[in-house]
Design a binder for these strands. Structure first.
Length: 431
RNA sequence: UCCGCGUUAGCUCAAUGGUAGAGCAUCCGGCUGUUAACCGGAGGGUUGCAGGUUCGAGUCCUGCACGCGGAGCCA
């Protein structure tokens, strides 16, 4: 007998097979009983009919509870009435473990209850769909860069100093060397690697100890950060739009079933094709003014501002040339106008906000040193970073894309907490 | 950190200041094609915690804890 997964049922119609899985729910009409099972690859309906199977097998239905594990042997039939389109006419059934009082019952639950039971919530079909899309996005990211000759370079997670500031770091003791911090970006290390390999990307978890409490924030989130030697801001934007187009189109192609389950309007995602609009910071301000928003030059855009700007477009929009004062020390200034940094943010459509932040980096030793001092950063900690400008410095650019916000946008979720298996938020670090 | 809302059965929620209730889940019974099946019955409560007002508080007041939504900051 073939031991198979539910997703393979189509190849076994009319044959006897073995499945292993868990009870999602069951129904009975007396002498005919139904069990809906899941095995991780899908769901399938089992039918037990009294009189055609041994009484002992028929009665195992009574023992099985929601989420009990078991093996089933039976005949595969095509059946349009069954969820998933197939059903198993049960011949025999072997109980592995009986679950007692599974807490997530087939009715609605509140978010606090579900988050407390996140380890069990992952078993539900909605979470399956979301995390499969996440998997597909990560796969697309790796394929995109690998196919373009980028080298994956893992940045350290324990770091000696801040990349961007000092107020938002998780701190830990590091033997006799004092404090260490959880990384908030792999970028500085990606720059070093780009000087070694030309085109690189880092991909890993990053940490922000900010007390942000919104639907777009986690304290631990995943970021992919490409960095390219000899690339300027325009090259950076070219890469970013090709990258995002590839991710979205790959998910539509390979995970249409999951998007449909989530009731995602796929036609909106189909529009995510190059070229994306590129607007100057000043144009973005004009858009805000036209929409009656009073915006002061020199500020960064808030959540509402981002939504208003991105609503003008059906595609992700790139805003470039931000005022240098609101951007990080390592960003290169526009040589034609020192007020601006050669920075770009990409805002996702439908109000999902910033998914990419990037820039051309400062490649001049003296200027970078000056910026480090202006920001009151400890020069010793950045000596290695300054070395990159001492030995064959070149123009280079890169960006970071937040995985969770990208998943939330593509799945059209209310909150990023569902985009990662075990979210870490300001008021939650369990389970 | 600030602003707003909330906390009642295992879960989701009701309950003019006057005897705490429903649906689901659980248990018992019925039903040969169910789709979060359905029908009948049963058990299940220190109303988040600590005070206060009142003849009487789930309900009004104060404080605390926890959660949710939003702001700031960011990806």
């Amino acid at each position: 007998m073939h031991k198979i997964y539910i997703e393979e049922l189509n190849n076994y119609i009319g044959q006897e097979i073995e499945l292993s899985g868990w009870v999602t729910h069951k129904r009975s009409s007396g002498k005919i009983r139904f069990i809906v099972m899941r095995d991780g690859s899908g769901i399938c309906q089992l039918v037990l009919v009294k009189n055609i199977i041994p009484e002992e097998v028929f009665n195992k239905y009574d023992e099985l509870t929601q989420e009990s594990s078991f093996k089933v042997y039976g005949l595969v039939k095509k059946e349009d009435r069954a969820p998933g389109g197939f059903e198993i006419e049960v011949k025999n059934l072997e109980i592995i473990h009986i679950a007692k009082d599974y807490p997530i019952t087939p009715k609605e639950h509140g978010i606090e209850f579900l988050m407390d039971h996140r380890h069990l919530w992952l078993r539900s079909s909605r979470q399956h769909a979301i995390l499969r899309v996440r998997h597909e996005i990560i796969q697309a990211i790796r394929n995109f860069f690998n196919n373009k000759g980028f080298i994956l370079v893992d940045a350290p997670i324990l770091t000696p100093a801040a990349c961007e500031g000092t107020t938002t770091l998780f701190e830990t003791e590091y033997f006799d060397l004092g404090k260490a911090y959880l990384t908030q970006s792999g970028q500085l290390y990606a720059e070093a690697a780009a000087m070694a390999f030309g085109k690189v990307y880092t991909f890993g978890p990053t940490f922000r100890a900010e007390k942000s409490k919104t639907r777009r924030h986690l304290t631990e989130f995943w970021m992919v950060e490409p960095e390219v030697a000899f690339a300027d801001l325009n090259d950076d934007m070219d890469l970013a739009e090709e990258f995002v187009e590839y991710i979205v189109q790959t998910v539509i192609k390979n995970r249409r079933k999951e998007l449909e389950f989530l009731e995602r309007d796929i036609s909106k995602l189909e529009k995510v094709k190059r070229p994306f609009p590129r607007i100057h910071y000043e144009e973005a301000i004009e858009i805000l003014k036209r929409n009656g928003i009073n915006f002061e030059w020199g500020n960064d855009f808030g959540g509402t501002d981002e939504t208003v700007i991105s609503e003008q477009f059906e595609k992700p929009v790139m805003i470039h040339h931000y005022p240098a004062q609101v951007k990080a020390f390592y960003m290169k200034r526009d040589p034609n106008d020192e007020r601006y940094a050669l920075a770009v943010d990409m805002l996702a459509p439908e109000g999902y906000g910033e998914i990419i932040g990037g820039s051309q980096r400062e490649d001049d030793y003296e200027i970078l040193l000056k910026r480090i001092e202006e920001h009151n950063l400890p020069r010793e900690a950045f000596e290695w970073y300054l070395d990159l400008r001492r030995y064959g410095s070149v123009p280079h650019s890169g960006f970071g894309l937040g995985i969770e916000r990208t998943v939330a946008w593509i799945c059209k979720l209310e909150h990023v907490r569902e985009t990662i298996p075990f979210p870490r938020m300001i008021y939650r670090n369990t389970p």
